Simulated scan of single mutants.
Amino acid sequence: MQVHRGIPEHADTPAVLTIGNFDGVHRGHQALLSLLTGKARALGLPAVVLTFEPHPREYFSPADAPARLASLREKLLLLQSAGVDRTYICRFDARLASQSAQSFIDDTLVRGLGVRHLFIGDDFRFGARRQGSFAMLQEAGVTHGFGVESMPTLCVDDERVSSSAVRNALLEDDLGHAARLLGRPYSIAGRVSHGDKLGRQLGFPTANIQMKHRRPALTGVYVVSVEGLAEERILGVANIGVRPTATARGRARLEVHLFEWSQNCYGAHIRVHFLHKLRSEQKFDSLDALRTQIALDSEAARQWFADRPAVGD
């Protein structure tokens, strides 16, 4: 998949296009992307996604913006796996926020991306003060010769599938429901970096994934499986949070203690699948108390897998 930063002045080829933030690439997104790629293949044109960075809500109200379900890199990997040919990342800034809906159609959709057919979600609005609508796009399609289709809402168990619904499920520790909305267990991917080696000192070495500036959508101690280190997934137990026992002002970090694994994995890009929550993150009175609890967590995770042997296959 080709990835482009910004919108070209003139498209080099017509495209079948969809627009959105695609946070988490949940089942609703997947259905939309299936329509996109199917139409693109039928027309012999590239399947193109236009997305925004940062998320518009992070731009307008950073303090109140929702936690991201996926980093930009994770989103791109998921879009690629869905069959997208090109993704354009448009910087959401003051210029874009003030751009009129008509200018967005003329400059971005028609001239910059060469839209031949457009798929949008049923709640899509665009342009300054969200003045652009589905009806406006239909009118533009008649003028400029491109088709416009709206993706109807996808529901699971009578609930509208959305990124907000996934976040709520994770917040309520309902990993099963989150997985149903996503079509897969919730996961976080990242590169293994050097930490402070505290886990090693406690007898439970961990693979550490720095969350950078990201606020995680879930926190606590979880049963996990990890891909990216071997042909089969490696089982383990993970803590995601600020590690209150180790530091007074910690940045969110994901630490995974891997079972049956002793090799160096620094620099590896791994994906951690969250399968079951064991407990919330807590502060312990001493490192000895923390060591005891980690041992209990590890045993509980091993028992969880033992009770569900197919999960570890």
Rank of each mutant, 00 (worst) to 15 (best):
L36M: 10
L36V: 13
T37G: 04
T37A: 03
G38R: 14
K39L: 02
K39E: 15
K39S: 11
A40G: 09
A42K: 14
G44D: 06
P46T: 11
A47F: 07
A47E: 05
A47G: 12
V49M: 04
V49L: 04
L50Y: 05
F52K: 03
E53Q: 12
P54T: 05
H55K: 09
R57N: 07
R57P: 09
Y59D: 03
Y59P: 10
S61T: 14
P66N: 07
R68F: 08
R68I: 06
R68H: 14
A70L: 00
S71L: 07
E74G: 00
E74C: 01
L77I: 00
Q80V: 04
S81Q: 15
A82Q: 15
A82D: 00
G83W: 07
V84E: 03
D85C: 10
D85G: 11
R86W: 03
R86G: 05
R86L: 06
Y88R: 01
I89N: 02
I89P: 09
F92I: 07
F92D: 04
R95H: 14
R95L: 12
A97W: 14
Q99W: 09
Q99N: 08
S100C: 11
S100I: 12
Q102I: 06
S103K: 07
D106R: 14
D106M: 09
D107G: 06
D107Y: 04
T108P: 08
V110H: 12
G112L: 12
L113A: 12
G114T: 10
G114R: 08
G114L: 10
G114F: 11
R116H: 15
R116Q: 15
R116L: 06
H117Y: 13
F119D: 00
F119Y: 13
G121T: 03
G121W: 01
D122R: 06
D123H: 08
F124N: 04
F124H: 14
A128K: 14
R129M: 04
R129I: 02
R130A: 15
G132L: 06
L137H: 04
Q138Y: 01
A140W: 01
G141C: 05
G141K: 01
V142R: 13
T143E: 09
H144D: 01
H144C: 02
G145F: 02
G145A: 05
F146K: 01
V148F: 07
M151L: 13
L154I: 15
C155K: 12
V156P: 02
V156M: 07
E159W: 00
R160E: 06
S162V: 04
S162E: 01
S163C: 07
S164K: 04
S164V: 01
A165V: 02
A165W: 00
A165H: 00
R167Y: 03
N168R: 15
L171W: 04
L171A: 12
L171I: 00
D173N: 15
D173Q: 12
D174F: 05
D174M: 08
L175A: 09
L175E: 01
